[in-house]
Design a protein around this nucleic acid. Structure first.
Lengths: 339, 339
DNA sequence: TTTTATTATTAAACCGGTTTAATAATAGTT
DNA sequence: AACTATTATTAAACCGGTTTAATAATAAAA
């Protein structure tokens, strides 16, 4: 393998000069610069990453921490990955993809070769955040942190506002009995969405019922589809809802499945909104799913940009809010039920 | 930041002894071992990755090269990523996710900090392969290389056999006019599939027509769905097919869409098979899609295992074949057309 | 007790790049 | 021509860990 010493020797200059040619941090004559670059090209010299990282104390790598290995990644996650990788690649950073291996013993492993970390789907009281603070490792969350955490930087959708908008859209369509199949309890996104849902009812002077908000129990349901399916099957025995807001489009698909089994027609008997927008799914279901576009790729890009600005001692906002958008398709209709 | 020198000083031993405690490559007394481990824990010592990589000449990182940034990643890709990350994490390797940035000028960038590379969706005459050979960088392909390349290691499905099976399944169901919406021209998977398709016809003593095999023109269609949609709209003007084999489930969805527009019923008027298995899509379409399970996660795992075995100078097979599986659902039926 | 073999530990070189303080070369001013 | 300022380049230290050759300590055999 060609090292900087080989290039220096053949070009007849010092290692330091070769280094300065590449870094452009010191004045090097045009003649020497040209000679060095020609030799480097001729020898096919490629700088050693570890050596450079060790000397500069920078890895130029971003860690992207994904959910635990036992949960399946969604198209949302995929788009976030896309956004992060895209922005990092533009700026000259690399992305180390990491899934947390629960119970892992990292005592003997080297520190992650990353300069900062983007955390997707952080848990409440996420122990990794404590660790990053301890190590002084810069990090950015995708999703809102706890209210007590006033320093963590994050990127998020306007979850309160968008669910308020969805709630109002349904209320304005005549729906009053709306079932909200929320995310898991304890996630900040679940809190925000519930708040938005409550505000929609409040805004119309309607009575908000806690029991209309269900939280996904991930130990009970192996996937979102089952959560949607079984929850509708169960709740229809107790109360007749005319509209459902589903946490994800997979949950919505489960609802569609249950509705078919129950002989309920979407949207005639039951209106349906999904709080995510897997376009392929939405456009290909019958009827086409009304959903929320969360712009996950944008979330990833903005998170990467914030983190990199922090790493380069540049101004970075505390948080960035990406407005979600209601995409009305065919799964909702006005209800005739007047009460 | 705590270094090995700090640990050595406080434990009253040399840096080399601390290193040997962790590596277990030299005999260290139990008493010294315990003392060192206690100090390391007390000081919260975490080895520096770059330093270790430089000294050992190993990064313990695998590069996963994905398709170019301008193409959208599919759920197949996601599962491959999952499989690779899972296997690597088990064995103590990390995964650097890389998307090729066309036209990138890497002259001033350090060499990828990876020990080996997994290449997903390699092109014909992929220039990266030339480069890896030049650098003596171990690599494994996911997908078959060109026939002239006799040394590249790869993982692949049994594409010839599975498409032969699909073809025979359709022929046995009475279909003779079968349209095959193949992958892009020039991809080895497209070659293999066509060969499998041809063999199915040959096996039944039927005449195989080249014009029944269409190749995806990615410059013409912005996504698989459009490829499926417009191709069916166009070809139905010239010939009446009773069955279609679609490259991916997205292509199949486009076909479904076109069939709806043309007033054709699936499967009564047209049978449909997708050569991939996005389970969510397949189960939620109406009718449920008959498809091929490719086991992408397994592809990823096996590719990672082969590569890591190569890196550890262990026996590794030239290639590993993952048998795909025909999953019969509701989108196919016997045809009554007897000719 | 002495000698030999085995185990345990060390100092220093090494990995390949960057940076710093020092020096040399060149250009401009007096 | 001599002096000063600026530009260009160098040798060596440094980054933090691993490895090697050498040495010290301990155990076993004669």
């Amino acid at each position: 393998m060609v090292t900087i010493a080989d290039v220096a020797k053949q070009a007849g200059v010092s290692k330091g000069t070769v280094s300065s040619v590449f870094s452009k941090k010191r004045p090097i004559s045009a003649e020497v610069t040209e000679r060095v670059l020609n030799v480097a090209k001729e020898l096919n010299y490629v700088p050693n990453h570890a050596a450079r990282s060790l000397a500069t104390k920078k890895n130029m790598i971003i860690g992207l921490k994904m959910p635990t290995l036992d949960t399946e990644l969604s198209s949302f996650d995929l788009k976030v990955i896309n956004g992060v990788v895209k922005k990092c690649t533009e700026i000259g950073y690399r992305v180390l993809l990491d899934r947390v291996y629960d119970g892992e013993d990292t005592a003997l492993f080297s520190r992650d070769p990353v300069d900062g970390v983007i955390l997707l789907n952080p848990k409440e009281q996420d122990p990794r955040i404590v660790q990053y603070k301890q190590l002084n490792l810069p990090y950015v969350l995708i999703g809102r942190p706890n209210n007590e955490d006033v320093e963590t930087k994050y990127v998020d959708n306007n979850n309160i506002e968008i669910v308020k908008e969805v709630g109002e859209f349904l209320i304005e369509s005549g729906h009053k009995d709306i079932l909200f199949l929320n995310a898991s309890y304890g996630m900040t996104v679940a809190e925000d969405r519930k708040e938005g849902f409550r505000r929609a009812f409040e805004n119309f002077g309607l009575h908000f019922l806690e029991e209309n908000v269900i939280y996904n129990d991930q130990e009970k349901y192996k996937n979102g589809s089952d959560y949607g399916f079984y929850t509708l099957i169960e709740t229809v025995k107790e109360k007749k809802y005319t509209a459902i807001i589903a946490d994800t489009d997979r949950v919505a698909l489960g609802v569609l499945r249950a509705a078919r089994e129950l002989g309920m027609d979407i949207p005639n008997d039951l209106s349906l909104v999904a709080l995510s927008n897997n376009e392929t799914l939405a456009l290909e279901t019958t009827p086409q799913l009304t959903s929320i576009e969360l712009f996950p790729e944008k979330l990833g890009e903005e998170a990467a940009e914030i983190l990199i600005n922090v790493l380069n001692d540049q101004l970075a906002p505390r948080h960035k809010m990406i407005p979600a958008k209601l995409v009305v398709r065919d799964s909702c209709r006005k209800t005739h039920l007047i009460r």
